[in-house]
Amino acid sequence: MNIFRFAGDMSHVVSILVLLLRLRSSKSAVGISLKTQELFLIVFVTRYLDLFTTFYSLYNSFMKVAYIASTTYIIWMIRFQEPYKSKYDASQDSFLHIKFAVAPCAGLALFACLVKGELSPIDILWTFSIFLEALAIVPQLFVLQRYREVENLTGHYVFFLGAYRGLYILNWVYRSYYEQFYRHNWLVYVSGAVQTALYVDFFYYYVVSKYYGGKLTLPT
């Protein structure tokens, strides 16, 4: 564990708490992409299968369970609980059908694992989750774009999620310098970089709006 990784994890936790606060305080899921939450749940469930095979630390296991549980809860709220359910507008969240994200990532993961000779289902699903995570934020970014004016807490949610990814890149740099038994994984680096790059545009408008103290409005 290093400071970047821990700060990244905490940023991720804060983002989830902010999202829950956002849902509860406004009593609606307008501006929130259910699709992104569902993609994240697929990511967590396929990546954290090692909960059953490898024990890293209590912290690690606890966080994995917490991510799966909180994301499941958020999806349940938006899909089945009032008033979120009736206010959720699926037509605003139409970009990127789940299967068009899952299928290419699954194909790519299978190919990558064949090349690397990692043929256990857990390895293949883990690699799949690395690719899918890079795409998971895309529907949320499109929902923001549709409404243009981003509600405060929703903006913070995306900001903390982006900060988490940015801090993870610093964590990989740190680890490669200071950990003796560290093996590079370029697939992780590339998809992590792609994932972070997706946030850059949002970050720019977020920081500018905070600097000038105005509302966060995205350009058309």
């Binding site: 690690n60 490669s176 560290y182 590079h184």
Partner: peptide
């Protein structure tokens, strides 16, 4: 054993 990057991460 070497741990591959990110396998022990969240």
């Amino acid at each position: 054993a070497k741990v591959a990057a990110a396998k022990d991460e969240l």
